[in-house]
Amino acid sequence: MGGYITCIVLALIIIFMGYLIHAKRKLWLIAGYQEDSFICNKDKLAKLFGVFSYIVGIATFLLPFGLEFWGIISGMVWRQLINKPF
């Protein structure tokens, strides 16, 4: 149960950080970003990193549920492979 709560809280933090980057244009949250040396479009950068953060947050949220589902299936397959006579 602790793994679920950890992944959900972490996913919410990542999604919130993506919102701050994408919607509020808080580019200082991006690691390695330097205002004075950046010469490209800042709106595109904010949108790209924001959407990327949304995707990572959603994947982090779904991770424990997928592991539980695929863990059961892989356990059943592994059990069949081990018990199979040669």
Rank of each mutant, 00 (worst) to 15 (best):
I8H: 02
L62W: 11
I5L: 15
F65N: 02
I73A: 05
F69T: 04
L20E: 06
L67R: 02
L62A: 14
G3V: 10
F52D: 01
F49R: 05
F38M: 07
C7I: 00
L10E: 03
S37E: 15
I5A: 14
F65G: 03
K84F: 14
G75W: 11
R79G: 05
S37R: 14
H22P: 00
M1Y: 10
I82R: 01
F61G: 03
M1D: 11
I8Q: 01
K44S: 11
K42V: 13
W28A: 15
V77N: 01
D36A: 15
G32I: 08
I58E: 03
H22A: 07
F69W: 10
M76A: 09
G50A: 06
N83Q: 09
I14K: 00
H22I: 01
W78L: 12
P85T: 03
A31C: 03
A46M: 10
L10A: 13
M76K: 06
I21C: 03
T6I: 12
L62V: 08
P64K: 05
W78I: 08
P85E: 05
Y54V: 13
V51C: 09
M1N: 08
G2T: 11
S74L: 09
V9C: 09
T6E: 10
T6G: 05
I39E: 15
K44P: 00
G50D: 02
I55F: 11
E35Q: 15
M1I: 11
Q34F: 13
G66C: 15
I82E: 03
L12Q: 02
M1E: 12
S74K: 03
M1H: 08
L62G: 02
G57R: 02
V9M: 06
Q80N: 10
Y4H: 06
G32F: 12
I8A: 12
K44M: 11
L81Y: 10
S74R: 01
K47L: 14
N41P: 01
A31Q: 05
S74H: 05
L29N: 09
A11C: 04
S37M: 13
V56A: 14
F38S: 09
F65D: 01
K42R: 14
P85V: 07
L29R: 10
F52S: 06
I58L: 13
L45R: 04
G2R: 09
E68I: 13
Y33V: 13
I21M: 05
N83H: 09
I13E: 02
K42F: 07
L12H: 01
C40L: 15
Y4M: 13
L62P: 00
G71Y: 06
V56W: 04
L67S: 08
W28N: 15
N41W: 06
W28H: 14
A23Q: 04
L45C: 04
A59R: 02
L12P: 00
Y19A: 06
M17R: 09
M17H: 00
G75K: 13
F49C: 12
E68M: 12
C40N: 14
G75R: 09
S53F: 13
F69I: 12
Q34P: 00
G75E: 11
E68F: 11
Y33M: 11
F65E: 04
K47W: 07
I55C: 08
C7P: 00
M76F: 10
A11L: 04
A46K: 04
E35S: 15
L48W: 06
Y4E: 12
F69H: 07
T60C: 12
S37H: 11
V56D: 01
